[in-house]
Design a protein around this nucleic acid. Structure first.
Lengths: 145, 145
DNA sequence: TAATAGTTGACAATATTACTAGGTTAAATC
DNA sequence: GATTTAACCTAGTAATATTGTCAACTATTA
């Protein structure tokens, strides 16, 4: 799992929608303004988010984007995966003929690391992040670590 | 903590040295060949690794790079930090005036995530990765998760 | 001492990715 | 129906990542 500003923008935007959602769609210009992200960039990100089925769109005035599932049903990892293709986790590309090959000693580390990060991010829903002072996340952290 | 291919290259190269080290320095062309990383790029990465004090270099024939500490004394996170500057973890840049501001709801998530990843990577040494079939890492994983 | 194998550093060149700008289309309101 | 608002699409530019080249400089070896 690759972690860049792109991932963060996508998550931030999704959080913004979840946070401000009151049944009505949220427009990208709104998000762009609130979160200080370029509108064009947001459009590209949301193109992917839509393709991945995470959001639905309504055109025209009053339109915008809505989460296609509940905020407690969308985890951070799927948002990131929607906009950022996976990082090749190993030099060998994860090929199975790489077992115990000294040319690919980092295979396991990156594999494991990827799994760890993904696990961490798969345990956190948009709703949990939004919940005041993030007590939910703190709980996760304390119990898991 | 930003995670990109660059980070992986650096870690992979360090692991290669640790793995092949028998008291003698390891040359970059060797690593480039074994790990399929461009020599030029390796040179740039090792320039940083040296500046950070993680490796020492020996010039001339038979020269190359050596770890400046034991492989069990170098953790993955410091390798990554040496080559990759930190990712801004939040849109607000972590400024303290951002508390409970709805414009920066993702603040805590990214902060926490960064800490988690760093913790994970700070618990793993080069030596642990190299140890056959990574039993050490598995142990860490099981106990922590 | 000459030749060689290696590091080191400075650039330039290319490739890939991040980000921006502008136009087109769809729906709503006036 | 004209205007507005917003999604959508197609580029372009800017920034990084990656590779390539060349010229010192250093130690080894013959």
């Amino acid at each position: 799992m690759k972690l860049t500003t792109k991932s963060r923008y996508a998550v931030t935007a999704m959080l913004d929608i979840a946070y401000h959602n009151k049944g009505n769609p949220i427009s990208l210009p709104e998000i762009a303004d609130r979160q200080n992200i370029s509108l064009s960039y947001l459009e590209q990100l949301f193109s992917r988010l839509k393709k991945s089925g995470l959001v639905e769109s309504i055109k025209g005035p009053g339109g915008g984007y809505m989460l296609s599932k509940g905020a407690d049903d969308i985890v951070i990892s799927e948002v990131i995966q929607a906009v950022d293709e996976d990082l090749e986790t190993t030099a060998c590309n994860g090929k199975s003929n790489c077992h115990n090959n000294h040319q690919c000693i980092s295979h396991n580390l990156w594999q494991d690391l990827g799994v760890e990060i993904k696990n961490f991010l798969s345990d956190i829903t948009l709703q949990q992040v939004i919940s005041k002072n993030n007590s939910d996340i703190k709980e996760i952290k304390l119990s898991e670590y």
